[in-house]
Every structure is written in C-alpha cells, then in structure tokens.
Amino acid sequence: MKQPENFQDAMNRLEHIVRRMESGEVPLEEVVSLYEESIQLQKYCRSVLDATEEKVRILQDALPESGGDQ
C-alpha cells in the first residue's frame, strides 16, 4: 500500500476504494486489503486535521517600517 502524496490524493483514493466496494465487483480476496487501506487513509486524514502546533507566524522583520491602516 503506497503512502498518499498529499491530502487531496488520500481523499481521492478513499473515494475510489469506497466506489469500488459499492460496485460489488471486488473479489473477496481483495476486500481485506481494501479495508486495511481505507483505515490507514482515514487515520492519515484525521491526523492532518488534528495537528495542533502553533500555526501562525508573522514575518515581522521582513519589512521593518510596515504599518498603515486596515
């Protein structure tokens, strides 16, 4: 099972898996691996959402005379 390249990729892959399952054409042999992959993808997606470190940085020294209204 390959790692998703990015979040969009993971969401696309997850949708693809669910559609394959819904098509009813997945051989029994493949069901388990699809199940495992979908769990991994969901974990990955939730982990991206749950990241909570400090996310805002202001590059204050970039322009020292910055100011102005609005």
Partner: peptide
C-alpha cells in the same frame, strides 16, 4: 486551525504600498 499561516506584513494604503506588496510577493 491545522493550516499553517505565514503573514508577510505590508502597508496596504498610501504611496509606496504597492511596492511593499510586490517585495513581499517576491519574498
């Protein structure tokens, strides 16, 4: 809250603010 934000300060009004915004875009 998981999106990283980088704020590049610039004046947004008055003479020279376009210049500052251009510099920040280049950065």
């Amino acid at each position: 809250p998981h999106i990283r934000i980088s704020v590049y300060p610039a004046r947004v009004q008055g003479e020279g603010s376009a210049r500052q915004m251009i510099q920040q875009m280049q950065q």
